[in-house]
């Protein structure tokens, strides 16, 4: 009974997406059944669209920059938590989490007002700032839970054994946190790649992929939207699978290493 319900739930989640994928390969422009055969017409059409290619390129630039900046800022923030005493820690926790609680709309208009007052020209840079603000809480929360489980004594032990702070970070902290950092960064990339709510307010003349899709959706019901959607989902899916693969391989390597360490007499 419950099992059947779970299947229904999955169907509710995935059938609409599968439908979009199906219609992306539709030979005709009809968006209803009966299905009239497969074709790549819509993909050819969209891949020949320069504005689409430009938007895709911009999205990759924005998502990459957002990932790198968020990862740098967020990792240091996550590492700061166990080092701070109670009150600053609570303050940092609150500040780092607060942007999540507000709807994207609020962040978007607040940033728009700031950029306008400061006379900052709206461009991909402002979009990257907005995306970083939106993604930081997700990243910090992800890494913070891992850092909380991480034994701080390990760092202290390394220091006692004579390693400098930088060596300790490189040889102890970073390897332990690496999988989490990677997962968090991929999450940020995916979030940024799909972000539209804040973007609409702080984007300049250029266009990101979701912004391009939105302007298409506002104009007409155009079957090429299906093809664009499928390409966007494919990209995100590939990223997630690659990240999953890397994590899995790392875990296997770690397990192997643990076994081989025991065999080497020291």
């Amino acid at each position: 009974m419950l099992r059947a319900y779970v299947w229904l739930y999955l169907a509710f989640l995935f059938l609409p997406i599968l439908m979009i994928t199906l219609f992306a390969f539709h030979a005709t422009s009809a968006l209803s059944f009966p299905f009239e055969g497969f074709g790549l017409r819509w993909f050819r059409e969209i891949l020949g669209n320069d504005r689409f290619i430009g938007a895709l390129k911009n999205s990759v630039i924005v998502a990459s920059a957002t990932s790198v900046i968020t990862c740098l800022l967020g990792t240091f923030a996550a590492l700061a938590f166990p080092r701070l005493s109670e009150r600053p820690r609570a303050a940092l926790g609150f500040l780092g989490f607060a942007p999540i609680v507000l709807p994207g709309l609020f962040l978007g208009i607040a940033l728009l007002v700031l950029f306008e007052r400061l006379g900052i020209f709206r461009s991909l840079v402002t979009v990257i700032i907005g995306h970083t603000l939106f993604c930081l809480p997700f990243f910090i929360e992800t890494v913070r839970t891992r850092v909380a489980y991480f034994d701080a004594e390990l760092e202290l032990a390394a220091r006692d054994l004579g390693a400098g702070p930088f060596t300790t970070f490189r040889l102890v902290t970073l390897p332990i946190l690496m999988p989490t950092l990677l997962a968090g960064t991929i999450l940020v990339f995916a979030l940024s790649f799909d972000e539209i709510v804040i973007t609409v307010f702080i984007i300049g003349d250029q266009s990101t992929l979701p912004f391009f899709i939105l302007s298409m959706m506002r104009r007409t019901v155009n079957p090429t939207i299906n093809a664009v959607s499928v390409l966007a989902m494919l990209l995100t899916l590939t990223m997630l699978l690659v990240a999953g693969g890397i994590l899995w391989m790392q875990r296997r390597r770690a397990i192997q290493r643990r076994v081989s360490d025991k065999e080497i007499p020291q």
Binding site: P16, I17, M19, A190, D194, I225, S229, A232, T236, L237
Partner: peptide, 12 residues
């Protein structure tokens, strides 16, 4: 499914 684009689902 959460990562399968917000706009795509509106369109669906």
């Amino acid at each position: 499914s959460w990562f399968s684009s917000y706009l795509v689902r509106i369109f669906a």
